[in-house]
Structure formats: structure tokens, C-alpha cells
Design a protein around this nucleic acid. Structure first.
Lengths: 339, 339
DNA sequence: ACGAAAATCGAAAACGTTTTCGGTTAAGAA
DNA sequence: TTCTTAACCGAAAACGTTTTCGATTTTCGT
């Protein structure tokens, strides 16, 4: 009825705990016979090692932490899948925590992971995060850390990212190539790096193709959500009825804008073309379906964990690795919101 | 540089480990003076108890497991939020695992949670789950278990659910009230209880309102996804052009159907009305916005953890609680896909 | 049959905490 | 002063595992 331990097995077999432990882990200094015996007995009793004791003894939890702004997001959920798949292969459990884009919560989640003594941490920063002392603490505790997607340049750790500027450039160029002459940009808040980079990519594409950059065509969506997409679209219709293309910082904002255009009878893409970013699942489900930029979430997750794993291993072996930065490719997905 | 322990503090202060431990936990048999001293030193050294040792000693992890079919789902993500919020209040960490609607994976995740020795488990079943031996194992190990939303009647544990049959009845009635005379149903697989219940509610509503139930108007969406929604809609258009209303098992399927109708020039809701289920976030973002049934995910999560907490507590006190079943209310959300 | 080498085993310490229970000290009562 | 009681402290065991290192046994060549 109660917990089966090594001791239990040892007593049943009349051998020592040591031997049982070693037999189970295939140490070379226990005979084939005893190994077989022990394993059989262990199976019979359904022995499961007490993970608490193992953790205490080995000083590692075989658990890693993952902090993301929001789980309900196609991009992050593919990252999660990529991470979990790799983690499972190596026998690691992933604790997923959300920051809800809040710095305060992010800090709390980091503390939680530290107190649970995870072996490593992966994080995509909240957009409101500016203070990075919590991340510095992680590093000072010598806990391997890998950042992805939304990163901070101030922390010297490995990073897996996309080239936001280039992707935004490509998106904008796609609009230009399809004939747009006056292109607006619904951007994110002023601070987050990816918001900045996407804006810069947009601007550069305009300039490179003989279109003048007009600051009044840039709308800020502070929280990057559906509602703000709608608001920005409403304002755009009032203020700039000559615009024939929009590049939005993310699909959700684009979906809000499309909803407004549909309601107002503005034809997409005939009257106005729209380009999203992220290839959120819904972008293919709406009418018209949304052209967008594919972010390789799964791949990013996969690489993130792999890098973390390398660093955890290197740490155990006492040979810490230098930080490494990997940029993944993105590409344009043409659907029906652009010509 | 290295890990601060009770021993460390004890040595610094020239007292015993015992006293340090007791001081930190406010035992009555240590003087105010020493308590203050110990706490100060602990703070100075930034002492953090070694959770591995605590777990081992107390035989509990202050961690609970949550298994859901998919995280990227508005309903489940509100459940998650409800659970996490409550869990945090009680100092519990929630390990979130996905079953991807696969029985095999679900079983594996249960095993993982068991091996990590969580103090309790919350689960919403995968739609393919029929064998329930893994859940029986949880119970035989005496791990508190609470099921929500997608449950199995065969497991005697507490459950937090909605009345699927009534909700489906309401949804269908809404279509009838708005003037639909010939109503199709895009249902889920044959096995899952909620798929069955929603079908029954649909059928009952028809019968109660003088509409004849026609089995050929019931389409099965095995995996309940966007693509299947599209396929069912295509078939419906070919096979039954007289249908003027559809009740779908879930929003995602409805969104697929709406996409097809939009493309084919079928007017929603004028030619055909559509009713979803779940109030997925996207249902308000598409054109036309989708009328649906609101499932109280947050409330469900909240109650699920509360119930689990009660049972974990009762277990510790050696006074196990009898299973309890709670049914939450749902209601119709009228949007633009119905008249 | 003897010894050396190889194979096999186990005692014990350690990981850091919690908690019981007995011991010591201080305070107050006689 | 001496005894009783209360206040405070600490030794030690326990949780279940891993791993080192020494001890014992077996094998095998001569």
C-alpha cells in the first residue's frame, strides 16, 4: 500500500540498498544475475524512484522553466511544442509560466522558478520589461538562461531570434510589389525591441523603394490587441483615406482592422491591402484570409531548448559555454488580403 | 558563492540548526530575540530553503498537475488562469501538460505527474480517451483528482462541468427562435460525452419545437477543427441547400463553415444562421461575428482548484472527502451570425 | 593448489530539512 | 535556599537516494 523504496526491494531480496540502486542504474559492478533479479522485483512492486530524494542527492531537478507573455497565442504555442518535444527527449519537464506582458509578474515567475530550483530557464520577455535585475539574478545564481523572440540586449546570454527588421522589410516590400503606393504601419509600443525593429524595417523598405516615409501614417497599438487594431483602422479611415496598404505589427491587430473594413464596406485587398505578422492560426480562417509573415515558432522552441540543454550540460561538466546568438529565417505568406 | 543552508546560518550565529529552522517557522519555543537574530541573518544571506529537502522531508511538493487537451484555446486558457490564480493564493505551483487530444499522451502525462509526485491532479479528458486505467491508477495511489469539462462518468471523483445538453438545447432554441426551420448540426466524434450531450440537446430542442429531427443533417467532425468545419459546410451546400441554420459543436468548426460561406457568396445570417459553442476569442473577430454559447472557463478553473485544494487538505488530515459534482451555468451570446 | 586479478558486493556518508523529545536554564514560589 | 514550573534550546532520527571506497568472493593461469 505504501511507497516502495530501494530498501523494500533490498530486504525482499536479502541484498543491500547499494546493490539495488546500482543494479537499477546498470552499474558495471553488479552481476547480470542480480541485475535481473532486482529489476524483476522492482517491476513487480512497481518501484518508482522518489524524485524528492533523487533531486536532493543529485542537486538537480531535471526540470526547466519557460516564461512567455501569453500561452493563448499560436506563435508561442508552437514554441512551447518545440521546446517540450526536445525536453522530453532528454527527460526534462517544462514548467510553463505566463508573464501576461507584466514586468512585475515576470519577476515573480522568475523567483518561483528559482525557488523550485529548475536546472535552466527559457524566457521571452514581457513587453513592459525594462528593469532586468531579475534576469541578472538568474545569471548570478549561475542558472543557465536562454532568451528567445523578445530579448534584451543587455543580458549576456544565448538568444534565439528572428530578424524582425528584415521580416518587416519583406512584409512592406510585399505590399509595395503588389502595387501599394501609400502604406501605413500599425506598430506596437515604443519600447520593445521587436516593435522598434519592425518599424525600422517598414521605414527602410519605403525609403529603398522611392516611397516617402510619413510619420502620420504610423499608429501605435500599445497593447497590440484586437481592439486596438479596430481603433487604429477607424482612425485611419477618418484621417487618411488615401492609404492603400497597411503593415501591422502582428496578426491580431490586422484581424481587428479587417473586421472594421468588412463592416464599413471597405474592400480588402482591392481598396486596401493588409499584411500581418506571425502567421497566427486565425489569419487563415478569416475572410479575406490574411497575408502575413511566418515566424518559425516550432523551430525556435526546438533550438531554444537545445541551446539550454547544451549549457546545462556544460555547466555540470564545469566548462561553461560562451553565449551564442542564432537568427532564424522568416518568410512571406501570401494570402487574400494582399494583391 | 554556494548555497546558503540552515547549517550556515546556525554556524554564523553559534546556535543549532534546529533552532534556526524553528525560528524561521515561528515555533513558539524559540525566544523573540533569537527569532529576530535568525531572520536577520537569513535575510542577509538571502537564505532560500532547499525545496528538494523540504519535499523529501514533508513528503509533499506543493505542486499540482493540470492536463488539458490544448493550451491554445480560449476556453482552456481561461480555465488555466482561474486555476493558477487560486493555486498561487495557496502557494501551489501548477504544472500544465497537454494531451493533444491523444489518449496515449494523456496517459504519459499522468505518469509524468505521478513520477514528479504532485500533490493533486486536475484533468479535462482527451476526446479519444476511453480506457481509464491511468485515472484509476491515480486514485489507487490516493492522489486527489478533480475532473472538469470533459469528464468520465466512470471515475468516482469530484467534477466541475457545464450542462452540455442544456447549453446545446439553448443554442438550438436560439436558432429556432430566430426563425430557422431546418437546422443542421456539425457534431464531434461519437464517443466523448460532451459531443453526445450536445447532440442530444440539439435533438431535444428540435423535437420540443415541432421540427423533425433528420439524421442526414448531422455531420460528424472527428477532430473538431477548422478544416473539418470547412468540409462539412461544403458537403452541406451540396447535399442540403434548404438548410437555414447550423449548430456547431464548437466555434472553430463554425469559423471554418463561415469561411466557406463567405467564399461561396452564401449570406450569413440571411441565407443561413450559425451558432457556435465556447465563445472562443476569434468568434467576435470574424465577419460576421459568431453567436455562441459562453462557457465560464475562469469560474470553472477557480472552482476546480478550490475543490482539489479541499481534497488535498482533507487527505492530509486523514479525513477524505466524498466526490462532489458541480454544474456551472452557460448562456447564449447573440452576435451577427444569427438573426 | 596457490596467488593475482577480476568481479561483485555493501557500509557509510552525504544531500538539507523537519520534528520529536529530552535536557538545560531561568524564573518564581515555598 | 530549594523545589517546581515554564521557557528555551539542541541532539538525533528520519525522509530515500547516490556514490565512494574498501572488503569480499570468484575466476583463472600457473
Amino acid at each position: 500500500m505504501k511507497q516502495v523504496t530501494l530498501k523494500q526491494i533490498a530486504e525482499n531480496l536479502g541484498i543491500s540498498i547499494t546493490t539495488v540502486s546500482k543494479a537499477l542504474k546498470n552499474y558495471p559492478d553488479v552481476s547480470k544475475k542480480t541485475k535481473a533479479l532486482v529489476k524483476e522485483e522492482a517491476k513487480k512492486l512497481q518501484y518508482k524512484p522518489n524524485v524528492f530524494a533523487v533531486n536532493l542527492r543529485t542537486k538537480q531537478s531535471k526540470t526547466v522553466g519557460l516564461i512567455i507573455p501569453e500561452v493563448v497565442h499560436h506563435f508561442f504555442s508552437s514554441v512551447i511544442n518545440g521546446i517540450i518535444e526536445q525536453a522530453e527527449k532528454k527527460g526534462y519537464l517544462v514548467i510553463i509560466l505566463q508573464s501576461n506582458e507584466s514586468y512585475k509578474l515576470e519577476k515573480k515567475q522568475i523567483d518561483l522558478l528559482i525557488s523550485k530550483r529548475v536546472d535552466g530557464i527559457m524566457i521571452s520577455l514581457a513587453s513592459t520589461t525594462v528593469d532586468i535585475s531579475h534576469l541578472q539574478e538568474v545569471q548570478s545564481l549561475d542558472i543557465p538562461l536562454v532568451m528567445f523572440d523578445k530579448i534584451s540586449k543587455l543580458i549576456p546570454c544565448s538568444k534565439i531570434v528572428i530578424d524582425d527588421r528584415k521580416a518587416a522589410y519583406d512584409a512592406t516590400k510585399h505590399l509595395i510589389d503588389s502595387g501599394c503606393k501609400r502604406i501605413a504601419h500599425f506598430r506596437g509600443a515604443l519600447l520593445p525591441q521587436n516593435s522598434i525593429d519592425r518599424f525600422l524595417g517598414y521605414k527602410k523598405a519605403l525609403e529603398d523603394h522611392g516611397l516617402t516615409y510619413d510619420p502620420s501614417l504610423v499608429y501605435i497599438c500599445e497593447n497590440v490587441n484586437y481592439e486596438e487594431g479596430r481603433e487604429a483602422a477607424e482612425r485611419l479611415l477618418k484621417e487618411h483615406n488615401d492609404v492603400d496598404g497597411i503593415f501591422t505589427i502582428t496578426d491580431l491587430v490586422a484581424v481587428g482592422a479587417i473586421a472594421v473594413f468588412n463592416e464599413r464596406g471597405v474592400k480588402v485587398p482591392d481598396d486596401i491591402s493588409i499584411m500581418g505578422f506571425s502567421n497566427w492560426f486565425v489569419s487563415q480562417a478569416i475572410t479575406p484570409s490574411l497575408s502575413t509573415i511566418d515566424q518559425p515558432g516550432y523551430e525556435m522552441g526546438k533550438r531554444t531548448f537545445k541551446q539550454l540543454y547544451k549549457e546545462m550540460k556544460a555547466k555540470k561538466e564545469g566548462a561553461p559555454l560562451p553565449p551564442k546568438i542564432k537568427t532564424l529565417d522568416t518568410f512571406v505568406i501570401k494570402r487574400n488580403s494582399t494583391k
